[in-house]
Computed example of a mutant assay.
Amino acid sequence: MNPLIRQHRYAFGVTLRRLFAQPFSSLANILVITLALAIPLLGAAALMSLRPVASHLAADPEMTVFMKVDATSAETDAVADRIRRDHAGEIEDLRTVRRDRALADLKANPAYAQALAVLPDNPLPDAIVVTLKGEDLAKRSEKLAAIWKTWTKVDLVQVDSAWVQRLEAILRFARAALLFLAVVVAVAVLAAVFNTVRMQALAQREEIGVARLVGATESFVRRPFLYLGAVSCAAAALAAIGLVAVVLDPLNAALADLARSYGTEFALRLPQWEWLAAFVVGVALLGALSARWSVTRNTRF
């Protein structure tokens, strides 16, 4: 067997023995890291689940293209067909509101009926209501409005940007908050592993001293501690995934009624397995990094 593989195998075995030698301390440390990791993981699940349904809330991302008053129905239909043809990939829905229908709807409202009754002609234009889909709606809606305004017989393009900017601001805030939370959790994990490895190094002080006297290298001495940090954090990451998976069931039950009130189906789901695998590996590497830092500082004796 390759000597390097044999050394890693020995270090891994030493790590497991040390973990099982102090089961209560090991479980308590893993539990603390698990709870810390579960919070950003739950936030990531919520954010990733929200993104596909954000555009299907009650406040749909709409733009209204107002035609000139003298535009005919054929010219309005031509503009609507051009929008469908040129921007098919960006449009969720498109409908045309005829000027006569718009006037009838206003007259049905008592607040406007008396004022409209004295008008000799219909002052309202035809309108084309376009529902967008996808992401980055604010910038895209402004770009589309600038294009459509230049078309023949188009008088005005109104962008319902207030809710778009509000929605994207909420998502940006959620991403920033999640990033900040991830940084805080990373620091907490570093501190927990650093302290655990420090306690282990001090407890193994005599053993490390004897190993150095018989010729053990620094890598040989430190390797079990690196495995200790990596194994503890990997176990905590897996436990955090399991904990979040369990917590999502009651959360989804509570969210079901709220989602139905918006006319949609929404449920929180864990990210895809590739993302979760990267999460476990990243946390394990973070634990190994913290362990190396700790053992370097606390085995200089």
Rank of each mutant, 00 (worst) to 15 (best):
233 C>Q: 10
273 W>A: 14
9 R>F: 00
12 F>H: 10
284 A>Q: 05
261 S>I: 12
36 A>K: 06
188 A>H: 02
107 K>I: 15
38 A>S: 07
222 R>L: 03
238 L>G: 11
238 L>A: 13
141 S>N: 07
201 A>L: 13
280 V>L: 06
157 V>P: 10
113 A>M: 05
230 A>K: 04
102 A>Y: 06
217 T>M: 01
274 E>F: 11
147 I>N: 13
12 F>T: 14
60 D>H: 04
167 L>H: 03
26 S>R: 03
55 S>M: 04
13 G>W: 12
154 V>I: 01
221 V>W: 04
158 Q>G: 10
259 A>T: 08
236 A>Q: 07
262 Y>N: 14
116 L>F: 15
43 G>W: 00
72 T>G: 09
30 I>Q: 06
67 M>G: 03
138 A>N: 05
79 V>L: 07
269 R>F: 00
186 A>W: 04
197 V>D: 02
262 Y>S: 08
38 A>I: 02
231 V>S: 05
184 V>H: 03
40 P>G: 03
154 V>S: 02
58 A>C: 00
143 K>T: 14
267 A>D: 13
102 A>S: 13
163 W>R: 04
241 I>D: 02
195 N>S: 14
97 V>C: 00
92 E>C: 00
64 T>E: 01
133 K>P: 06
295 V>Q: 08
246 V>T: 13
150 T>M: 09
54 A>E: 12
160 D>G: 11
122 N>R: 05
44 A>P: 00
138 A>C: 00
63 M>E: 05
250 P>F: 02
130 V>R: 10
